[in-house]
Design a protein around this nucleic acid. Structure first.
Lengths: 230, 230
DNA sequence: GTCTATAACGAGATAGAC
DNA sequence: GTCTATCTCGTTATAGAC
């Protein structure tokens, strides 16, 4: 009985993976907007209604792809982080940023799915929030380590008056142990990192920046310095 | 005869504008991917073949919308620039960045069209390049003014060895009168600016940054400092 | 209980004959 | 320009195989 259940569970996992793989292929070909359950089913030799055993709706399939993408990116970034435990925090920061960039270049359509234009009519459920936070948490962790470690962080100038309250709130939310001007700089750097990646991926750097790897490395090193790393 | 031609020309301009307006409405409702000449025609009470007299293809209509969006954004940014001729260059930098953000918040779907995920199958023609460059040129201009004006720019550290050649090339291309480390910082800041705007617009700041105007102002002020403004 | 297949709905796009 | 026949889509109800 446990074998029968095991086989069924295994089959379910395999079919689920096959559906997502085919869906990712369609994502690359036509974009998230045109992702269709029927086309996925057709390509898999299934009937469309059968897919509803695996994904209650088209939007749930999209959600699964989004979560997978965030997790795939997060895993890659975390690997780069772990590989750099021995180097300085600024080098680790650069390594994580470079991992983000490389993942994006390897998975342009999934990158567009999670960091590009929102899909009209689709509303991301709460379940996407934790996977989406992984890269951000990693960057916070690097800065926290540097803050607590020997040498500490470079002192940053305080945030202006009109940002004080909001910066304190953000810091209390994300990293209560860090100075609020550092957390504000961190959130800024986090957004700017994806600005750099997006500009390269979406063609804004075409005929402007050609040799992109050193350009990116220099830019994210400056970002790291901007949050106080050294 | 010239009156008849004038009337015809006027009518053509009006119909062209009506087509683009309706297309922009569909852009907001369904996204660029699902923009269809047929649906636009239906909504305008025209027959689809009639539209081809105004736009030879769906892609040409898309191109027109993209150029309009870049021009609309560029105009807004240039207005902010001109309104700030009397203030310092850092304040003018901030004003232009805030104009970009405000335009994006006012035109989220057009922003997604030009700075979001590329539309699958659509390839932007060369005609989109000059309008797309307007904001970047404006930012270069601000830094150039500061460089040539009294006080000059803050000294930046040189770019690393592996970026030297590329930074020189970019500087020769975009602003031969500026030091190449400044131009590299400028291009970086340009991308990072749109990272900030995109994160706000595409929902990445939801439940993270709530009071966004002062946050953005502080972030772009730091960006301006990063290119040497003071 | 778990899955797949058939059929159908209403809405929308599309192609071609007229 | 118009009309129609034929496609697509998401989704559901239902029936039957394992």
């Amino acid at each position: 009985m446990s074998t029968a259940q095991g086989a069924r569970a295994r089959a379910r996992i395999e079919v689920t993976a096959a559906i997502k793989d085919e869906a990712r292929r369609q994502l690359a070909a036509e974009g998230a907007v045109k992702l269709s359950l029927r086309a996925v089913a057709r390509e898999l030799g299934m009937v469309s209604s059968a897919l509803y055993r695996y994904f209650p709706s088209r939007d749930d399939l999209l959600t699964a792809l989004i979560i997978d993408a965030y997790d795939s990116l997060g895993e890659r970034a975390e690997q780069a982080h772990e590989a750099g435990v021995e180097v300085g925090s600024l080098e680790r920061w650069v390594a994580v940023c470079e991992a983000v960039r490389c993942w994006a270049l390897d998975h342009p359509h999934e990158y567009a799915l999670i960091y590009g234009s929102p899909v009209p009519g689709y509303i991301a459920p709460q379940a996407t929030v934790p996977p989406a936070a992984r890269v951000g948490l990693l960057l916070i962790g690097i800065v926290r380590d540097a803050h607590q470690g020997p040498g500490g962080l470079e002192e940053l100038t305080a945030v202006p008056e009109d940002l004080r309250t909001e910066a304190d709130r953000i810091a209390a939310d994300l990293a209560p142990d860090l100075p609020s001007e550092v957390v504000a700089a961190l959130v800024t750097a986090w957004a700017q990192l994806f600005g750099l990646v997006g500009f390269e991926l979406f063609g804004q750097f075409n005929r402007v920046v050609e040799d992109r790897a050193p350009f990116f490395r220099h830019a994210v090193r400056r970002l790291g310095r901007g949050v106080g790393l050294r």
